[in-house]
Design a protein around this nucleic acid. Structure first.
Lengths: 111, 111
DNA sequence: CCTCAGGTACGTATTGCATCGTACCTGAGG
DNA sequence: CCTCAGGTACGATGCAATACGTACCTGAGG
């Protein structure tokens, strides 16, 4: 029941280059804009993002986001949880999540 | 003497994906952090960035930045000027330049 | 006109990255 | 124990991006 926490780098070790490369991909960015827009920061399942890619590729993308320090993955063995590292990201790169949140509004409410 | 202005997309047509892909590259990001940190927004020469790459590759990178809408290139024929589109970028992606400016401080004053 | 420095155009090698196929692991529930 | 869904590991592949060589253009200044 209690899952193992898979964490990335420490909060102050986040690198802008790694973060921007992570956000450069459409699928990863769509995950991040969705997370940034949800102020409750609740734990999400991996399938709740409806990514149009295979599960192997999803594994890859979530790993990239985790290693960039943007999310935490909680391993339950046969299932996995995703959580945004909001305070860490916000303290290291203030304003970044606001940009992603604005982008989420753009993509969900085209006009 | 008067150079032709090579512009990219309109201010409200900037796309986050294109911008982030442009900023994902180390060399292009170093150019942008330097531009963001210079509040005078003066016109810069292409060689004033001391990029450790060939001039053909520099042409490529500046083109990417221009097509992303981040800079304007001024063509003098046998020389070229670079200028940050600060107000356009700031109005479309508020806070982005502040992130780059902070990164510039990090890279120039390690500790 | 000639030279030179700065830039571009085109082709190409190489690298990086996203994607998926196959095989295997894990825990829940029959 | 068996099955099944969710997830990972490893390898292969295809494509886009970076990088540079060669050739050519442009304007300034002899």
């Amino acid at each position: 029941m209690a899952g193992r926490n898979l964490v990335g780098p420490e909060a102050d070790a986040l690198e802008l280059g790694v973060v921007l490369r992570a956000l450069a991909d459409e699928h990863r960015r769509s995950v991040m804009t969705e997370l940034a827009a949800d102020r409750t920061d609740s734990e999400r399942g991996c399938n709740s993002f409806a990514l149009p890619i295979s599960k192997q590729t999803q594994t890859h993308h979530f790993r990239v986001l985790r290693e960039a320090g943007l999310i935490t993955e909680i391993d339950y063995g046969n299932r996995k949880g995703i959580r945004l590292r909001r305070t860490d990201v916000e303290s290291r790169f203030p304003g970044l999540l606001a940009l992603l949140e604005a982008e989420h509004r753009n993509s969900t409410a085209p006009r």
